[in-house]
Design a binder for these strands. Structure first.
Lengths: 227, 227
DNA sequence: ATTAATAATGATTTAGGCTCATTTATATTG
DNA sequence: CAATATAAATGAGCCTAAATCATTATTAAT
């Protein structure tokens, strides 16, 4: 065997081990929460000695930070895919909102873990990087909307961003507590709000709303006649 | 000494001790965070043996839950005072938003602790009660606005509440990271948004009509899906 | 094949939450 | 007031789980 292959296998083994640990940590974390997650259980699940975990991550916090980072990275990828399937700014925003809310409700605890990670975090904390990358998805869409002239606002972007993500994050908590409430309602409301407040043409917004109602009416009529 | 005085002093002593423990816990918590807070340090600060703490609180989590509860109770009192000083619905809302944001930024970590408290919380978890009492302040103001006719919306209250508190909570995080940004900007923006979207304005009559239709549609859709 | 370097191990150390047998303080009663 | 009963407080010690590190195993280089 030549050097490169040998070197490669060793690296590959380590990388596989790291992935296994991260995956085990993710499972343990979502099953038992932050305090409940045991390093011993993670090591066992990853089929690794307890000490080995500490070769890859300095301590428990760092390992769980890594899990949270991975979570946001995955979210970023998903958000780009989903928003990429739409053309207009408002469609993109709606898709992003739906995706965001759905994922937050699904992996609800990770929001809490993220907050915890930030607890002692400073402005340049590395644990913030993946979150920055994620919110950038919104920023890009919104800026594009402004460039295209479909969105108009005097407010700085960060204010609108707080509104967007803040509403959705808080709503995810509400939805998590009251399972019966509907996700769509939150998204509909938020998007309509953005449309009304930042949409370039308010009269156009109402036309859009009328069209949406028309469609839903037709859907209802269809359901009624099918019965 | 008569019985009542004797009984009184004993109770008073215990109540004083409980307050001391709670206060010590609060300090320890805001200084060292959730994991960093040591029961031994809390006991020492409260001038009490470590075992004594466990006579008043079953375990660490319960003690820290109590701290968080107290935090929200204090917030509720403050919010009532502040909003009581205003007449119109929008002034009340603005005052509430300003107060809320200011307090959240001041005691920033407590939001994180709250989220943590909820981690395993269910719908009827007692740790939710003080938070419910707090958000009720908003609910009352908003409903009053609807009764008076200054606010009009077809959206359910909880959606608007998520918008209000969600935006502010998320903004408090942003503000905590970027100290240079201004609180007022967030509040101004939020209130203007509410005014524009929910303010009763004759020129927005069509919007109101649309919302009424929306409401009825949702009701019909719900009936259909329930069948 | 030998040696050097790196990775992995798990027994041991350490720290902090929590318990409980004992002690101290308060209330009750004759 | 003394004797007794009850409630509150104590802190040494237990237990669990994170983190360490001397030792062993594996891989790479010569």
């Amino acid at each position: 065997m030549n050097d490169i292959v040998k070197l490669g296998t060793r690296r590959q083994k380590m990388e596989a081990k790291e992935r296994a640990i991260l995956q085990a940590a993710r499972n343990e974390l979502s099953q038992h929460g932050f305090e409940g997650a045991k390093m011993s259980a993670i090591a066992r699940a990853a089929e690794v000695a307890e000490g080995t975990v500490y070769l890859y991550y300095r301590n428990k916090r760092e390992l769980l930070d890594a899990v949270v980072s991975e979570f946001w990275q995955t979210l970023t990828t998903g958000a780009r895919v989903v928003t990429g399937q739409h053309e207009t700014t408002l469609d993109k925003l709606r898709a992003l909102a739906e995706f965001h809310l759905k994922e937050l409700v699904k992996d609800f605890d990770f929001v809490g873990f993220t907050v915890r990670t930030r607890e002692t975090g400073t402005l340049d904390s590395p644990s913030l990087t993946p979150i920055r990358a994620y919110v950038a998805v919104f920023d890009e869409i919104f800026r594009q909307g402004q460039d295209r002239g479909t969105l108009v606002t005097a407010s700085p972007l960060w204010v609108v961003r707080d509104l967007f993500y803040g509403t959705l994050e808080y709503a995810s908590r509400t939805l998590h507590l009251h399972q019966e409430r509907r996700h769509e309602e939150v998204v509909d409301h938020l998007i309509e709000l953005i449309q009304r407040c930042y949409g370039a043409d308010p009269s156009q917004a109402q036309v859009g709303a009328l069209e949406a109602i028309e469609q839903r009416l037709q859907s209802i009529e269809r359901q009624l006649t099918n019965q």
